[in-house]
Amino acid sequence: MKPQKVEKSRQLGAELVIPVMAIAFTLYYFSTIWNSPWTAQVSAFLVGGILLLVCGIFILNCVRMLANREGSLGFSTLVNRDDIRTGRIGFLGATLGFCVLIDHLGFTLTTFLFLLVSMAILGKGRRLAMITGLAAVISVAGWALFIWAFDTRFPRGWFEITMEALLSNG
């Protein structure tokens, strides 16, 4: 007889994150419309009421599962050691950096830096020369297509302004 595969218990702590966020947001939303005209309230109370009800049922269900030892309050499906191993945390940091820097450095430079850093993190520092070249080609191609050719409203910085001046002067 083959050994039966032991099913991993459900990580209910992680599964409760969305319902908790939903409840918190709904209560906050209700607080903003408490003294508003009925037109601002009617649909929100209807939708929010159903959402609170469904979340309540889900939480009760989780409590029942915890009591029956069918799950634990763990978060390992959401956050675990693999997030460091795969470079996910570093990638998240690079993404945050991208959002912050793009307003100051413009699209092209920030994209180059972001691609370089994030590819290096995800590639665990291997093939750095190739990654640098790739990041440079992609960011310049992005500038050429979206900013130079189509004049798209991308954030502009030192590189874009310099290139614009260079190109307009012939």
Binding site: E15, I18, P19, M21, A22, F25, T26, Y28, Y29, T32, I33, S36, P37, T39, A40, S43, A44, V47, G48, I50, L51, V54, C55, I57, F58, N61
Partner: peptide
Amino acid sequence: LKGLIAGFFGLMIGSIGTDVVYATPRGTM
């Protein structure tokens, strides 16, 4: 349950903004 939570949470997020009649801001943080 998860499908309904996701759908209604989306509907609630979609309700952010001013109401269409009196322009009362709702859930805009």
